Amino acid sequence: QHLGESQALIDIARLCSTNVVIPEGIHCCGFAGDKGFTTPELNAHSLRTLKDAVQQCSEGISTSRTCEIGLTQHGGIDYHGLV
């Protein structure tokens, strides 16, 4: 998001799916590089509303492997890389 590439990634996702959900209020997973391994509370707090937001989804996408770990754990669906 800081690089201003969000819309391009959303456009790519929409080419792959007829239903793209972008959870409101979640702008960062809170994994903070590798800090999610040692301070999982950061990730848990950042993603506390994710499971409800993606309950109708069967899979999720991300652009960061460590984000995918936290998103999968807290979203209740499998997240994988967009590329």
Rank of each mutant, 00 (worst) to 15 (best):
19 N>S: 12
26 I>T: 09
48 R>G: 08
18 T>R: 11
4 G>H: 10
1 Q>P: 09
43 N>T: 15
62 S>I: 10
79 Y>D: 00
25 G>R: 02
35 K>G: 11
16 C>N: 12
54 V>R: 02
56 Q>I: 05
38 T>W: 03
28 C>Y: 12
76 G>S: 08
14 R>Y: 06
62 S>G: 12
54 V>N: 01
59 E>Y: 13
14 R>L: 06
79 Y>R: 06
43 N>R: 06
8 A>W: 09
62 S>Q: 08
73 Q>A: 15
43 N>Q: 14
79 Y>P: 02
47 L>Y: 05
22 I>M: 11
65 R>H: 04
71 L>F: 07
4 G>Q: 08
44 A>R: 15
34 D>K: 08
42 L>E: 01
81 G>K: 12
37 F>M: 14
23 P>S: 07
9 L>D: 10
51 K>R: 15
75 G>D: 01
2 H>M: 10
80 H>Y: 07
37 F>W: 11
21 V>K: 04
40 P>M: 00
70 G>T: 03
29 C>R: 02
69 I>L: 14
49 T>R: 10
40 P>D: 01
34 D>E: 12
50 L>H: 02
48 R>M: 13
14 R>A: 12
12 I>E: 10
12 I>M: 09
57 C>S: 10
13 A>H: 00
60 G>W: 00
17 S>F: 07
32 A>H: 04
81 G>I: 11
67 C>R: 01
12 I>W: 04
39 T>F: 12
48 R>K: 15
34 D>G: 10
22 I>V: 15
4 G>E: 07
67 C>A: 10
61 I>C: 08
26 I>Q: 08
34 D>Q: 07
75 G>Q: 12
79 Y>G: 05
27 H>M: 04
54 V>M: 01
61 I>S: 05
68 E>Q: 15
40 P>S: 02
53 A>K: 13
44 A>P: 04
8 A>L: 13
64 S>D: 14
38 T>S: 13
3 L>I: 04
36 G>Q: 01
66 T>W: 07
15 L>A: 14
79 Y>S: 05
20 V>Y: 03
74 H>Y: 15
41 E>K: 09
2 H>S: 15
61 I>L: 15
5 E>D: 11
2 H>F: 11
4 G>N: 08
18 T>N: 15
3 L>Q: 07
73 Q>G: 10
11 D>V: 03
5 E>K: 11
79 Y>E: 00
79 Y>K: 03
37 F>S: 09
35 K>D: 11
80 H>F: 07
6 S>T: 11
81 G>P: 03
67 C>D: 04
66 T>C: 09
11 D>F: 02
28 C>V: 13
65 R>V: 10
7 Q>M: 10
29 C>D: 02
11 D>P: 01
41 E>G: 03
60 G>H: 01
31 F>Y: 14
36 G>S: 01
15 L>W: 03
34 D>P: 05
82 L>D: 02
33 G>I: 06
83 V>C: 11
64 S>I: 08
24 E>D: 15
54 V>L: 00
37 F>N: 14
11 D>M: 04
40 P>Y: 02
41 E>D: 11
82 L>Y: 00
30 G>T: 06
53 A>Y: 03
7 Q>N: 13
36 G>H: 00
53 A>F: 04
78 D>M: 07
17 S>A: 15
56 Q>G: 04
48 R>W: 06
17 S>C: 15
47 L>K: 02
34 D>I: 12
32 A>M: 06
59 E>K: 12
36 G>R: 00
22 I>Q: 10
8 A>E: 14
39 T>K: 08
42 L>G: 04
74 H>K: 10
